[in-house]
Write a protein that binds this DNA or RNA. Sequence first.
DNA 1: GTTGACAGGTGTACGGCGTACACCTACCGT
DNA 2: ACGGTAGGTGTACGCCGTACACCTGTCAAC
Lengths: 218, 218
Amino acid sequence: MLRAAVELADAVGIDAVSMRRLAQELGVVPMALYKHVANKDQLLDGMVDVVLGEIEPADPDLDWQAAVRARVLSARRAVLRHPWARQAIESRTHRTPTVLGYMDSLAGTFRRGGFSADLTHHVMHALGNRIWGFSPELFDEPPAPDAAPPSAEEQQALAAEFAARYPHILEIAVAATGDDLSGVGAGCDEQFEFEFALDLLLDGFDRLRAQGWSSARR
Amino acid sequence: MLRAAVELADAVGIDAVSMRRLAQELGVVPMALYKHVANKDQLLDGMVDVVLGEIEPADPDLDWQAAVRARVLSARRAVLRHPWARQAIESRTHRTPTVLGYMDSLAGTFRRGGFSADLTHHVMHALGNRIWGFSPELFDEPPAPDAAPPSAEEQQALAAEFAARYPHILEIAVAATGDDLSGVGAGCDEQFEFEFALDLLLDGFDRLRAQGWSSARR
DNA sequence: GTTGACAGGTGTACGGCGTACACCTACCGT
DNA sequence: ACGGTAGGTGTACGCCGTACACCTGTCAAC
């Protein structure tokens, strides 16, 4: 049933996954689902667990940095396979055993790499959702081209207005796209951004570890 | 009306903010709201804009690092004043002018600090949601004490089970709480974690800027 | 071989949601 | 005096999660 839910979400998006719809997909009456999960929240928890189950186990032969990197990128692959997972993970407030298990295992990698429990704690916070293989998208998806695209003049006017109001964003978009600019903010290379930030953080972690950083408060 | 919506969300939480409930609060019929917003999504957008409006403007006298730090911490104060804002911001997919304006202004701070447009782009991605003053909570809120707390024995058993399954998390919790351990994961010092990660990132950014980093791809 | 527990499917119903659509009213510039 | 417009109204539809009472088949214990 969790598998069916995952497939349904893959197919129609997480918002369209309702108890009723899922039941229909399973050829069953909605209330039947409640024999397997207590409520919809628990269904979502289970679906997230399925996705997290796809994360490859840690490779014990790698040093901590490579191991964390590999693990997180594996998580990313899992999340990218299920476009709804990002939102689902963000919305979960409960920590299931699967979630805890993954976090524990990742923490273990840091510990074995010579991080104190203290520092491990803080670096995992610093990674934040990157643990799960994603970070927020700063800009929109390419704005779904619904209805007639604005005429050339309108587009011109819009672009001018945008340039005047948000010069720095424009500049960035130009730099990022090699000034073709077709559709401002038409999608960053998310994978690049993810690895950029990840490596930046791992580098910083290594520096702190090397200098024997310890939390100063209290 | 947006103000009323914000106050309502402050009072009862974002999930309890429905068009009907908000209308009731305003002494008006639900459909009346649709004269002011096109739909509920737009209402949420507007509410987020109100919160972002509370962020203090950039101080032009600070160097880039202090300026970004101050700005982001101001955003954090705004978000913490409205506990629902975090979730609301995460759920928004649309970029309102307010959102774009804030991002543009922050990008400007980097640019004036000597960052290339290219590097500015990537560091803003690296900050991710920290731009808005928050990062995901790794662990639960203290698990709302509903119903009878488990008996001492049960608690013992639970703790033992937990220790066996998640030794590293336990270790971290011990390190973080000074081993009193009343309720595992009983809340981290989120403010500390936030600033820890923020400073780590700002440090990394500075190193990249100083060495004239430029994106290598393409 | 009967029985009783239990896993799991069924049917009905309730209260809530967002919002489409047609309508009404008060005001204001002409 | 009048037409447009901003904003409030009332009704209705189709969705949602899920409480509650009920039914059915399987299987172990007696």
